[in-house]
Design a protein around this nucleic acid. Structure first.
Lengths: 131, 131
DNA sequence: CCAAACCTATTACAGTTGTAATCGTTATTG
DNA sequence: CAATAACGATTACAACTGTAATAGGTTTGG
């Protein structure tokens, strides 16, 4: 039995989700405020996005008096995994390495990135061995 | 002076571009045919996509009698670089490693991927040294 | 208690996208 | 030559997006 098959989340909707992935549950106003540390978003716009996310099943809420407290229905990691896979599929025909190569080639790889990658590879190789 | 600032390319439009990245220039019919090795696309639909890509500036064409021969105006690598960067920015706040970690964690990393990653890292480190 | 403030829900509206059909023009075929 | 087929261009149309404004109901400040 698979999940209710969440509809696609648009880029602006994602910004709302990101806020709630950092902290939840939050009221609509909390979300508006969080988003307004930085780029400006009109309050009405944010509320529309919240509403759409609820309709798409990406947010749930509990009543708190007259207002609602919203929370995500999916974990950030799940979202990231699914999006990564579909992105890599769409743009790179499913191959991961060319993406990393692109970063390397355009000087977007930092020392830190490389260190982390090495660590991931080590972990992966260890995993393979004792499996 | 930056480029004419190409509009966004939709997922279905991308399928058309991919065909032309493999071989160009091609007639509309060649493209239709290429796309119909596999998933089915209605001829009219494909022609619409081609037209939109031309309007977006992502395709150019030369006349060949009554028909046109189309070709991409941007290289696949450029497209991939730009999309990767915006994807990683949007979904991972700009950090590459977590994407790779996600692949590793969900058993999507193949032996081959890892071999390629190691090679990329080696190359990167060599590059750093003699710079 | 009544008006003002505040919630969420509903409505708006143009641009994009997926998916085609139709139009106008040129080429082709009988 | 006349009917038809084949092209690209234009038009269609609903769903999704970005960006809000309005409506309807409740709370609260005076």
């Amino acid at each position: 039995m698979t999940q209710p098959e969440l509809k696609d989340i648009s880029p602006t909707e994602l910004e709302v989700l990101k806020v709630l992935w950092q902290q939840a549950p939050l009221s609509a106003n909390d979300i508006v405020e969080a988003l307004n540390q930085g780029g400006e978003w009109h309050e009405k716009t944010v509320k529309t996005l919240i509403n759409r996310l609820v309709n798409k099943g990406a947010l749930g809420f509990k009543k708190d008096g007259r207002a609602y407290l919203y929370f995500p229905t999916l974990a950030e990691h799940s979202y990231q995994r699914k999006e990564s896979q579909s992105f890599i599929q769409r743009v790179f025909g499913g191959k991961l390495a060319p993406l990393v190569a692109g970063f390397a080639g355009s000087n977007k790889l930092t020392q830190e990135d490389v260190a982390e990658l090495k660590q991931l590879i080590d972990a992966w190789e260890k995993e393979q061995k004792h499996d």
